[in-house]
């Protein structure tokens, strides 16, 4: 049983890779990029949320916010461990980046990544208080759900397994956000919610990336992605519109 096949054929046919030793260099670079984006986004997201824990109007809200910070950090840890198996210096990785860094609030949507981390662009914008944080968490949470669904069947098995653990927790964070927005609306803060929706919608929308990436086919062939950015974006638009509708809100009219 020594018969082997080309690793790219193996991947194109749905094969799984399981450890750094049998990963080709191109694949490794793309996988590291995907994992770094996940880790940086989770760490930046957790860091942003840590700042609003004390803005929570009640004890339940603060517990929810603290839990989100804890679990997002833990999700980052799971994937960072995998990066560590590829030789990443995990201790230095976490300390190296200023995860709380944000751009000025009025920066236009789609601004490119700041400094030198790989977080999704939406995480470069600052949260403006509790209501804003909850709305951002709802819209972004739905986006994360869509994006993670891509990785559940990643051809790098340890990464797919880490995402299978992370995805249900992220889903719960989104549910907490939906409950939070509902409460804010009941409390008569509809206008503030609407303002935050108008602010975050285009910024979350931009985080899916634009146009057709020439790397898209290559990533598909490697089994690291299965859908295009546009397909993921459409899925999110549908989910987010429905979530807002359920809350008696509309998606911002003129925006992407």
């Amino acid at each position: 049983m020594t018969e082997t096949m080309d690793i790219s054929d193996y991947l194109a046919q749905g094969g799984r890779l399981t450890n750094p030793a049998n990963v080709p260099s191109r694949y490794r670079a793309e996988l590291m990029k995907i994992m770094a984006t996940f880790v940086d986004s989770e760490l930046a997201g957790a860091a942003g949320f840590a700042d609003v824990i004390n803005a929570g109007p009640g004890i339940k809200e603060r517990i929810a916010a603290a839990r989100i910070v804890l679990e997002k950090t833990d999700n980052a840890d799971k994937v960072l461990k995998i990066m560590g198996e590829f030789g990443a210096n995990t201790d230095r990785y976490v300390d190296h980046h200023p995860w709380t860094d944000r751009l000025p609030r009025d920066t236009a949507p789609g601004a490119s990544r700041n400094a030198h981390d790989m977080r999704l662009s939406v995480l470069n914008y600052p949260l403006a208080g509790w209501t804003d944080a909850v709305v951002m968490n709802l819209l972004m949470g739905l986006a994360v759900g869509v994006q993670l669904s891509e990785f559940l069947s990643s051809s790098y098995q340890p990464f797919a397994e880490a995402i299978r653990e992370a995805a249900p927790r992220e889903k719960r964070h989104t549910e907490l956000a939906a409950e939070g927005v509902e409460r804010l609306i009941r409390q008569g803060k509809t206008n503030a919610v609407k303002q935050s929706v108008a602010y975050w919608w285009p910024r979350v929308s931009e985080s899916f990336g634009t146009g057709v990436s020439p790397r898209s086919d290559a990533l598909k062939a490697m089994g690291l992605r299965s859908k295009s950015n546009a397909e993921l974006h459409d899925a999110w638009t549908g989910l987010a519109s429905a979530a807002l509708e359920k809350l008696g809100l509309e998606r911002p009219a003129t925006l992407a």
Partner: peptide, 8 residues
């Protein structure tokens, strides 16, 4: 160094 993959 951190990632050793040209990413970070």
């Amino acid at each position: 160094y951190a990632c050793k993959a040209g990413v970070c």
